[in-house]
């Protein structure tokens, strides 16, 4: 069976047309994403390639409070650069309704390498689509998307920036593309650990940190895989023994509500350990206030359930048992993962 696509006509039409210099063409070079030597090559984003003008526009939008319904909060209100783009409280109340959110604000670290879903449960498949949720949700930025388009169109500067970045007038989907480009440009890879691992400037880890590194490799690295320090995957790390709260669209059942697979009950995305020393509190609901609390939890608080990750059961014992010295050493190592570039 032959299949014709009408788009072939476009190609034919274009190739037949007489050539003419496009005076409208605007220079917008590709954005040079600095790939650290200890990272893999990031995936390509053919539908939204990073450009210099796109990233710059995304940055301006990210910090612009016009993006919220009452023009009081921006993306950066809850994704603060000084906290590696996290927020600092367990459940933020900075949204327009002032109601506490149901999940902890995540960091925005090395997202160009993140390909396996966004939000703690992976409910969004890419950063472009993800942006619609916080922008529109009544407990977050509660923005009328049509109104946002009009507000941006009222500013000459934005008209020019969209023209430069996308060779287009202002459209809501381009707002999402620009925000995604900016977020993908945020690379955290200049911590003390990075310099040590890349042999830069003779940076060394001290004995305590090296011992902690070895504790990390033995106990944490399977989920918090180096050098992104996350496996970009979903696990039940034993925070809860039961999952009986079906409220809020099954928000408390973890990734199950996205996949409808019972094996995914209680699973959440592995957060990166990069900048972990400055991004308290911890877990998807921010229940632990300090890294010491987190280690204590893994030591003696892990709850058994059907979907508990098998990695957390070793020699018939649940959890990750570390003696006080190993805990101290691990904390010292985790402190070497802080990159203060954007802080």
């Amino acid at each position: 069976m032959k299949i014709y696509r009408l788009s072939f006509l476009i190609l034919a039409a274009l190739s037949l047309g007489c050539s003419k210099d496009d005076a409208e063409y605007i220079e917008n070079p590709q954005f040079d994403l600095r790939v650290p030597a200890n990272f893999s090559e990031p995936p390509e984003f053919p539908d939204n390639p990073l450009t210099t003008a796109g990233v710059a526009l995304g940055e301006k939008l990210f910090f612009d409070s016009k993006l919220s319904g009452d023009n009081n909060i921006s993306c950066a209100t809850c994704h603060k650069p000084e906290l590696a783009f996290s927020e600092g409280s367990a459940l933020s109340t900075k949204g327009i309704s002032g109601k506490p959110l149901l999940r902890h604000v995540p960091t925005l670290i090395n997202l160009a390498w993140s390909q396996n879903g966004f939000f703690w449960d992976g409910g969004s498949k890419n950063l472009e689509s993800q942006a619609f949720a916080p922008l529109a949700h009544e407990d977050e930025m509660f923005q009328d998307l049509q109104e946002l388009e009009e507000e941006l169109k009222a500013e000459l500067e934005y008209i020019e920036l969209f023209e430069n970045a996308f060779n287009s007038e202002i459209k809501i989907n381009l707002v999402m593309k620009a925000l995604a480009q900016y977020q993908r440009s945020l690379i955290f890879a200049d911590s003390k650990y990075d310099k040590y691992i890349r042999n830069e400037n003779d940076v060394e880890l001290n004995q305590q940190e090296l011992r902690g590194y070895s504790v990390y490799l033995d106990n944490c690295a399977q989920c918090h895989q180096s050098d992104l320090f996350t496996d970009d995957n979903y696990h039940n790390n034993g925070l809860d023994a039961t999952f009986l709260n079906f409220s809020n669209d099954e928000m408390f059942l973890g990734r199950y509500r996205v996949t409808r697979n019972p094996d995914d009950i209680g699973k959440y995305k592995t957060p990166t350990l990069r900048n972990v020393a400055i991004t308290a509190p911890y877990m998807h609901d921010g229940r632990f206030n300090s890294l010491k609390e987190v280690l204590d939890f893994y030591n003696s608080g892990v709850q058994e359930s059907e979907t508990l990750d098998p990695l957390l059961i070793q020699n018939n014992k649940i959890g990750i048992e570390l003696n006080a010295d190993d805990q101290e050493a691990l904390l010292a190592f985790l402190n070497t993962l802080t990159d203060s570039k954007y802080l």
């Binding site: 409910g123 969004s124 993800q130 619609f132 949720a133 922008l135 949700h137 998307l145 809501i172 099954e250």
Partner: peptide, 16 residues
């Protein structure tokens, strides 16, 4: 279009 109410921007947070 994202503007006509036929997107799930909060429904289960499946942005689709």
């Amino acid at each position: 279009s994202q503007l006509n109410g036929m997107t799930n921007i909060s429904w289960m947070w499946h942005t689709s």
